[in-house]
Design a protein around this nucleic acid. Sequence first.
RNA 1: GGGGCGGUGGUGUAGCUCGGUUUAACACAUCGGCCUGUCACGCCGAAGAUCGCGGGUUCAAAUCCCGUCCGCCCCGCCA
Length: 592
Amino acid sequence: MKFKKTHDCGCLRISDVGQEVVLSGWVNVRRDHGGLIFVDLRDREGITQVVFNPQIDDAAHIIAHQLRSEYVIAVKGVVQARPLGTVNPNLITGQIEVLVYEVEILNTSKTPPFEIEDKLDASEDLRLRYRYLDLRRPKIQKNLIFRHHLCQKIREFLDRHRFIEIETPFLIKSTPEGARDYLVPSRVNPGRFYALPQSPQLFKQILMIAGFDRYFQIVRCFRDEDLRADRQPEFTQLDIEASFIDEEEIFELVEGLVVYIFREVLKREIQRPFFRLKYKEAMERFGTDKPDTRFGLEIVDVTEIVKESDFQVFKRAIEKGGQVKGIKVSSLEDISKGEIDYLTSLATLYGAKGLAYFKVKEGRCDSPIAKFFDADIQRRILDSLKAEEGDLLLFVADDFRIVSESLGNLRLHLGKRLNLIPDGTFEFLWVIHHPLVEYDEEEERFKAMHHPFTSPLAEDFPSLEKNPLEVRARAYDLILNGVEIGGGSIRIHQEEIQKQIFGLLGISPREAEEKFGFLLEAFTYGAPPHGGIALGLDRLLRIMLNLDSIREVIAFPKTQSATCLMTGAPFEATQQQLKELNIRLDLPCNGA
RNA sequence: GGGGCGGUGGUGUAGCUCGGUUUAACACAUCGGCCUGUCACGCCGAAGAUCGCGGGUUCAAAUCCCGUCCGCCCCGCCA
């Protein structure tokens, strides 16, 4: 390099006119006028127009002829105000330009497979294959820089609240329950494996026992499950745990953190305190444990009303212990048959056997099935849903889970379809008091809904033996705009209760000893009461930046089939590697 | 494991439903020429695609059928 850069490409202003500067960056675009040549020079801070004039320096002008997109260059020149009428209001540096008298080509570039600009014109697989080029796009750079600022502010806030960041190991012991683990073979211990952590759960509890009474970590977690737009096999959590703390203090802390980061990084004020909704109420009103409360369309129970109707579908569902619920959609009476069919297919996707509908016309229910409901029942249905002329009513009859899930998802679909969801708003919500356990039909046993270390609610403790499904947990999820961005609980810190829960979950004392013996033992050495929470950083960022996928806030994300298109991971291990690890492959082969 | 959408010059798309007037079209990018105030530069010209891959139907396949691979969205899964 003949000269060192003195400024970034986004910082020069009209007040810098007259200065000699050196800029380095990538050629965004070259505009050759035969005489004058303009180059938009780009670095991560912005774009500055540099001008080559043959009358100023012929040699530089000749070199400028060779410049192509994405060449890396350094230019030395003088900042000048742009001539009248040539100011570009679309650039922050648009009032000035750099008149170049010396240029050095630091590197050439092949023509990139797609243009480096914010307007997306490349498919996602191409972007991932050439991620280093994709990452040059200002929009993606902005996302990652935003992510950096967010982490800075999180650390600042938690440090100020006396939290200590401690790293926990990645090569750990597999724990039962939860997601599928990624395994790493141990070379020095033939036949044995490490698991990559799904979260630092056990270690952060151990740190509480160790006396680090306020811990946090911005940490990678790994889960070997199928991917979604908001699920990657490796993702980042803000993991927090504290001792001598209860739910109220966790809410206080996390709400304070959220208000702080939104104010500092996004310049947005978030209202406190956040709404709180009990799990049961969330399920009943919104059909989900992570309701989007930015719009209405709440679910209404009409079981008691319609059980007296002549509609066999409803009656049978109720007789089998199920229920009938509905939602009201305003002014949709002119909905097409095709769209009703689509809504029905959506409901069946979540297990519903069908979708009943009424259109409200002249104070009555208009529907192929209306004849099964006498005038009094129709009136009571309309009353309970507060239905008015022109409304569309949709009903599902089935067990609680199917009714909730299908109507909950129908509600979400209609909210989007009818533009009921306000843009650019952030609605936080605590969902609390989840059931401690749920019943797993397949395995014929209770499973922890959160994780096996979650404390039951003290007042529900007596039901633990007789009626475990009724026991609520001291758990809480943080929901933002209908997305679960965090969850946690107050933990069990007494060995006896922990053993009792393991018993409930069908984990034998022997198995518990084998899997979590170290934790149970640690509990016997003075474990303080403690609890915590983990926030999904990628999801939080995705929503803060109003993006469709967490892949846009992760520098090197994986595809849906968990591969990296840039590096080709995962790879086929060599025979040598497998031999060292004492691993022999037994792959299913096609027809051989 | 299952359902849906997509794959056509370097890139993004049209063509596919009804097989043949298609010599596969358009835009951007690329290359060459001209151009001293452009910034979506402009003008003139050029090059560039056996239509993801394999098989089948047919006189004839980008187009129809079967299989397969890749990407995306979803169900299951994700304490």
